[in-house]
């Protein structure tokens, strides 16, 4: 049992070290088979706030999302799509917050106010359509590194 745990720990540690632990604001974007030449990075920047740290009334960080993308094909090459749209998606997929359109180059898209989220760039019918199209780039908010350890014997019995 510990072997499985240890394996998971070492795997997670290796992945984090490889990512050079860029800090709490950086997101590496990975491409999909839909756009194998695409790549990108995102950075979360606190929105303007008189207090220096922009948060919602319930304490969620309020970030402007900056996306730098390259290698995105014309969206029409993927089907009947006219734009790439960035979405902040809650980890249970219940919430899709449209951040804005993404093109090759630097983009400051909208504001993400979700504790943990998937950052998805997808081809969509229009810049304002609901999400239906294929994903071309994806990443997770840095807080996605937070993992549940409740299944480990050490923490057995701790309520979730």
């Amino acid at each position: 049992m510990l072997g499985g745990w240890l394996g998971r720990v070492l795997l997670a540690a290796t992945v984090v070290a490889a990512a050079d632990r860029a800090g709490p604001f950086d997101i590496s974007l990975f491409n999909t088979q839909n756009a194998p030449d695409a790549h990108g990075q995102a950075r979360l920047v606190f929105g303007q706030s008189p207090f220096g740290v922009a948060v919602t009334a319930d304490g969620r960080a309020s970030y402007d999302v900056r996306i730098t993308a390259a290698g995105l094909p014309d969206p029409s090459t993927l089907g009947r799509y006219s734009a790439y749209v960035a979405w902040a998606v809650s980890t249970d997929l219940s919430r899709w917050d449209r951040l804005g359109t993404v093109t090759n180059g630097d983009n400051t898209v909208g504001r993400a106010e979700v504790n943990k989220f998937l950052l998805v760039v997808a081809a969509e019918s229009t810049a304002t359509s609901p999400h239906t199209g294929p994903t071309v780039l994806h990443g997770t908010s840095p807080s996605g590194w937070l993992q549940s350890f409740l299944s480990h014997p050490l923490f057995r019995g701790i309520p979730p």
């Binding site: 745990w5 720990v9 997670a12 740290v53 960080a61 840095p142 807080s143 350890f149 480990h152 050490l154």
Partner: peptide, 19 residues
């Protein structure tokens, strides 16, 4: 610390909130 606790803390420290 038990090794498993050390390992837990190592992985847990992979993320720090800005605040």
């Amino acid at each position: 610390l038990p090794l498993a606790t050390v390992q837990f803390m190592n992985v847990d420290t992979a993320y720090y909130a800005p605040v």
